[in-house]
Amino acid sequence: MDTHFLAEFVTGEPEFRQEPWYNEYGDCVEYLCANEAVVADRVDGILTLYRSAIDDRAIGFQLKGISAIMDKFGLDKAAVLAETRRDRLVSVMLLLLAALKQSSVTGTRRGLEMYGAALQELECAVGKDVESPQPACS
């Protein structure tokens, strides 16, 4: 394969991490739970669901207009960009619920299903983050 045209920009090995991140250039939050190519499935002006290019299952989403959502609902940007992973997921869940509240597709079955799919992706990630209880020391 040809050398990537941006290879000079990166060092080390690439890695996949299942965590949401705020994209300041697009004012959007991106979240992906599988290291696969995506096909966008636009729900409305706020949410785009990412479907796997391999089998069409929902594997993430893009949430747009984050600044406007935060302003409208008085959400704390610092909370969304919190350091700990679980806090991040919970904050993004809050953003998703806020987005759903102002979405134009709330009244449609498809709209609710798509927002539901996005929330479900996050719920799975939160579940995976919960550590198993450690055995008590004897």
Partner: peptide
């Protein structure tokens, strides 16, 4: 413009998206 910060972000979280920057170009 492709900012280095975006390239690094996808390289360290989503390698397939990094590779598909070739398609974007």
């Amino acid at each position: 413009i492709i900012p280095r910060s975006i390239v690094l972000q996808v390289y360290k979280t989503n390698p397939v998206a990094y590779e598909n920057l070739r398609c974007a170009k």
